[in-house]
Amino acid sequence: MDHYAVFGNPIAHSKSPQIHGWFAEQTGQQMDYRAILAPEDDFEGSARQFFDAGGLGANVTVPFKLDALVFSDQLSPRARRAGAVNTLQKGKNGEIYGDNTDGIGLVRDLSDNLGFNLRGKRVLLLGAGGASRGVIEPLLKAGIARLKIANRTPEKAQQLVQIFHGLQPDAELSAGNWASLNASQYDLILNATSASLSGDLPPLPDGLLAAGALAYDLMYARQATPFMRWAEAQGAAQVADGLGMLVEQAAEAFFLWRQVRPQTSGVLQRLREQLMAG
Rank of each mutant, 00 (worst) to 15 (best):
Y4L: 12
Y4M: 10
Y4E: 03
A5V: 07
N9S: 14
N9G: 10
I11K: 04
A12K: 15
H13W: 10
S14C: 05
S14K: 06
W22Y: 14
E25F: 11
E25S: 14
T27K: 14
D32E: 15
I36W: 08
D41H: 08
E44I: 00
E44Q: 08
G45K: 02
A47T: 01
D52W: 10
D52P: 06
G57W: 00
N59I: 06
V60L: 14
T61E: 13
K65Y: 11
K65C: 02
D67L: 01
D67I: 00
R78Y: 07
A79Y: 01
R80S: 09
R81D: 06
R81S: 05
V85K: 02
N86P: 00
T87S: 12
Q89L: 13
K90L: 12
K90H: 11
N93W: 04
D102T: 11
L110F: 06
L110S: 01
S111T: 11
S111P: 05
S111C: 12
L114I: 10
F116I: 04
N117K: 12
N117T: 13
G120L: 12
R122A: 09
L124G: 00
G129K: 03
G130F: 02
G130C: 06
S132Q: 13
S132G: 13
G134A: 13
K141V: 12
K148M: 13
A150L: 05
N151P: 03
N151W: 04
N151V: 10
T153K: 03
A157K: 00
A157V: 03
Q158T: 12
Q158N: 11
Q159M: 08
L160F: 05
L160T: 04
V161E: 05
F164Q: 01
F164W: 06
F164T: 01
H165K: 10
Q168G: 02
P169R: 10
D170R: 11
A171Y: 06
E172I: 04
L173V: 04
L173H: 00
W178M: 04
A179F: 06
S180H: 04
N182G: 10
S184D: 14
Q185A: 08
I189Q: 00
I189L: 12
S196G: 15
S196A: 15
L197I: 12
L197D: 06
P202A: 07
P202D: 05
L208T: 01
A210K: 02
A211T: 13
G212F: 08
G212M: 07
Y216I: 03
L218D: 02
A221V: 07
Q223W: 09
Q223L: 12
A224F: 11
A224L: 13
P226T: 07
M228C: 11
R229A: 13
A231Q: 05
Q234I: 09
G235D: 13
A237T: 06
Q238L: 11
Q238C: 11
V239Y: 05
G242A: 15
G242W: 03
L246E: 06
V247M: 11
V247P: 09
A253L: 04
L256M: 09
W257C: 04
W257S: 03
W257T: 01
P262M: 09
P262W: 09
P262A: 09
Q263F: 08
T264A: 09
S265C: 08
G266E: 14
Q269K: 15
L271R: 02
E273L: 13
M276D: 15
G278L: 12
